[in-house]
Design a binder for these strands. Structure first.
Lengths: 145, 145
DNA sequence: GGAATTTCCGACCGAACAGATCGGAATTGT
DNA sequence: ACAATTCCGATCTGTTCGGTCGGAAATTCC
């Protein structure tokens, strides 16, 4: 499941990307990305901790991308907000943990199935970057106009 | 996310499939499938409502599959317990609903992305049936023995 | 008919998580 | 000094998750 938080994070980051290198204050970002301002601050804090956003305080301050959009993988981005992509922990590569009630994970049919699912998800998300999302937005946006 | 409930449901159904056509009482099923008995009853109720399980009361009663394993699609099964497969409602085919804050779903980059994810998930789950899971279990189980 | 077995059903419950809000401290530019 | 802004932790409300429990209804066997 994609939480609101991750959805907002995605919107915030694409907005920052489109804004160029200049810092954008939180309240302006909130308006443009359509995210509740106080909640956005929590999210920006997460994104900063994860190294996606750099912030500057004081007048003329604001938030900007810490690295170029093509270096921000969507899989990792979503992981940093929502946790592992796998539907179940025992099928996660990045955060594996066996089910407490599972006698033998290697023989678990559910795990095999869910590993395929997790790989399918990762195949989509880990192959794309924020740049792809920005481009998508421009194209779609232009068509709408 | 795959909930415990869905995981248990999967285990219960494969157990029923392996048991053949005969009805299996809930407490025996609980034991074999390693599911808390009282919780299992809730799950069986869902599965019955969804048409996967037929139950008979009284002595010699129990639960059995309502249709052959190869006719039980894993996608639909999981949907019936956990809801839509899509990570976000606006990307669901079977249960579409636009985000309340989305000005134009057709121009939403997040939705495009998540639609690809939902298709990837569905490609895995909607192509398999309970039969595949049962076979997987036999193979893996045999190897372990 | 009565007893045993079993399903069936709804109410409840505690812990965790989602989706925020709020108040105030710290930092920075003018 | 002051205004703008980030930064941080506490709190809060509602929902979902993962169950449990008690009892009613059905079925079978004797």
């Amino acid at each position: 499941m994609l939480t609101m938080k991750a959805k907002y994070a995605l919107r915030a980051l694409t907005t920052l990307a489109r804004h160029g290198g200049k810092p954008l204050p939180a309240h302006q970002l909130a308006e443009r990305a359509q995210v509740p301002e106080s909640f956005l601050e929590v999210i920006l804090s997460d994104l900063r901790r994860a190294g996606y956003v750099a912030s500057k305080r004081g007048l003329q301050g604001g938030h900007q991308l810490a690295k170029p959009p093509e270096q921000i993988g969507l899989g990792d981005l979503i992981r940093s907000i929502d946790g592992p992509l796998a539907p179940i922990r025992c099928a996660s590569l990045t955060a594996y943990r066996a089910c407490s009630d599972c006698p033998d994970p290697d023989a678990c049919a559910t795990r095999v199935l869910m590993t395929d699912v997790r790989n399918a998800i990762s195949d989509v998300l880990d192959r794309r970057t924020l740049r792809d999302q920005v481009e998508l937005e421009s194209i779609r946006g232009d068509l709408a106009a």
